[in-house]
């Protein structure tokens, strides 16, 4: 119950951030512009894309676009939730109530996560409305895979914000996100594997990095109606382990900084 009370205040705080509206409007404008584009005729060197293939590519690009946009917003919101409480000293009064540090941390992180989900959901709905797609429900299903990725992003950015200057935290989180996507590429694109076989070092890094890339590519595969390969179980396990681990690290770091 107290977790939701803290979270409600956090959500209110997030909605005061102008960047939220700025990013939402920018994303909305791009999605709206897609509607005005004439798909025309796309002729490759050896193939002619039909209308459905073109729509599928457009939806995929839009999906990856909203994923990237949501990660950026999520990391920007998450960098402040705990670090700002410590810097401003506003946590002091709340923590003098019968609340565990874990509850407080969960409530604050939940607020950034919820606002990011709301942003993602709104963009996905706009995508549904403005972009013609043969299987619209697949967009919804694909977006669901971004939810755990946003949770990971929230937890990771918050950890970075507690150990580095606040502004660096989203950059670090986006670096991890980018590396994870890059490392996952050959495992989801067969044709890429023909020209690039990942080295054992890259494979190891891929296995141990948080599965941002996997979650996004699995979501994209669902949107395209393609199969998402054999990586689902590993991705789910990796995400759970990372979420639990990062959550514990968040609580420990916050408590240490608060009580020091």
């Amino acid at each position: 119950m107290k977790l939701w009370i803290i979270s409600a205040i956090g959500i209110k705080e997030c909605f005061r951030r102008r960047i939220l509206y700025g990013m939402f409007l920018t994303a909305g404008l791009f999605i709206f512009l897609v509607r005005g584009c004439d798909s025309g005729t796309v002729r490759g060197e050896r193939l002619l894309l039909d209308a459905e293939a073109r729509a599928s590519i457009a939806v995929s690009i839009a999906f990856h676009g909203i994923a990237l946009w949501s990660f950026v917003l999520c990391s920007v919101l998450s960098m402040s939730v705990l670090a700002r409480e410590l810097d401003n000293g506003t946590a002091l009064l709340t923590l003098s109530r019968p609340i565990r540090h874990g509850e407080f941390v969960a409530g604050k992180l939940l607020s950034a996560f919820i606002v990011s989900i709301m942003h993602l959901a709104t963009l996905a709905i706009m995508l549904l409305v403005f972009v013609p797609a043969p299987h619209r429900w697949k967009i919804v299903l694909g977006t669901v895979f971004l939810v755990p990725a946003l949770m990971l992003c929230t937890l990771m950015t918050s950890v970075f914000s507690l150990i580095t200057p606040r502004v660096i935290a989203p950059l670090l989180a986006m670096m991890v996100y980018g590396t994870s996507c890059w490392a996952a590429l050959p495992y989801y694109f067969d044709k890429l594997r023909l020209i690039w076989t990942p080295s054992p070092a890259i494979t190891r890094a891929y296995q141990f990095l948080p599965c941002f890339g996997d979650l996004q590519f699995i979501g994209a595969a669902v949107v395209r109606g393609a199969s998402f390969g054999e990586h689902l179980t590993g991705t789910v396990l990796n995400t759970i382990v990372y979420c639990v681990g990062l959550w514990i690290v968040n609580v420990i770091l916050f408590s240490r900084r608060q009580r020091s």
Binding site: I9, E13, N88, T90
Partner: peptide
């Protein structure tokens, strides 16, 4: 030094 969420 009382510090409260000033937006409330």
């Amino acid at each position: 030094h009382i510090r409260i969420y000033d937006f409330l």
